[in-house]
Design a protein around this nucleic acid. Structure first.
Lengths: 114, 114
DNA sequence: AAAGTATATATGTTTATTCATATATGTAAA
DNA sequence: TTTACATATATGAATAAACATATATACTTT
């Protein structure tokens, strides 16, 4: 992973929040991210596709929903950078968590239950 | 340190290389960075002043030279992100190290000798 | 010591370039 | 056909580059 390309992915408000939220939650679908960030859906989709193209995220369709998660094949140093940033900046995501919590009827994840 | 602001500092080729070189070498002056990156001096100075303003670097004038180093008061998570990136991306800086090595008559640092 | 000169660094201003946004529209699943 | 998501295009805003120039320290010469 080219470090410049990696940091460019993290240098946009929308992308940074999405990545940190996804790491915190494991996986999130487009609609959940749209709500959490209070943005319009095309904007979210566009940034997600960019992060996927750069290798930071992977996607998985499950019926009507597409879930995005952190790419497990990412180099360790990248994972650590993201994890540390996430751990030390929970307050940065406060409003996003709030929005996410207020969201009812969230799609059920197969791996998450039990 | 706001994470977005922090990553924006790292998301430019010139700034990223400068930061990593400075961390590797401890301190570097403007002229050394100009040579290492093969860029014009005003471009280097401008990015340095931006990194100083954002709190990533500190400067110290010693005679004719101004040495830049990593701000020791930076939050730990920021220091760790930079250090890990530096450790795992030495090849990214290969050409810059080469230019730096070819530079003769580098200014003597007071702390470096003995 | 004063004046002039060279070197190192910083900054103001204009011009390019990159990047993100918004709107409209397209595709896929239920 | 409704819900969920993706993409194309045009536009605008933020950012970086280049060039000229200013400042600050050191070095010379008289």
């Amino acid at each position: 992973m080219n470090p410049l390309r990696f940091f460019k992915c993290l240098s946009d408000d929308t992308r940074l929040r999405m990545i940190l939220l996804i790491v915190s939650e494991g996986e999130l679908c487009v609609g959940e991210l749209t709500t959490a960030l209070s943005e319009i859906q095309p904007k979210i989709s566009r940034h997600l596709s960019q992060l996927k193209k750069c290798g930071l995220l992977t996607d998985r369709r499950q019926g009507q929903w597409v879930f995005y998660g952190l790419n497990s094949e990412l180099p360790d140093w990248c994972k650590q950078v993201i994890q540390q940033t996430c751990d030390e900046n929970q307050d940065f995501l406060k409003e996003n968590y709030k929005q996410l919590c207020e969201l009812t009827n969230r799609p059920v994840r197969p791996g998450t239950c039990c």
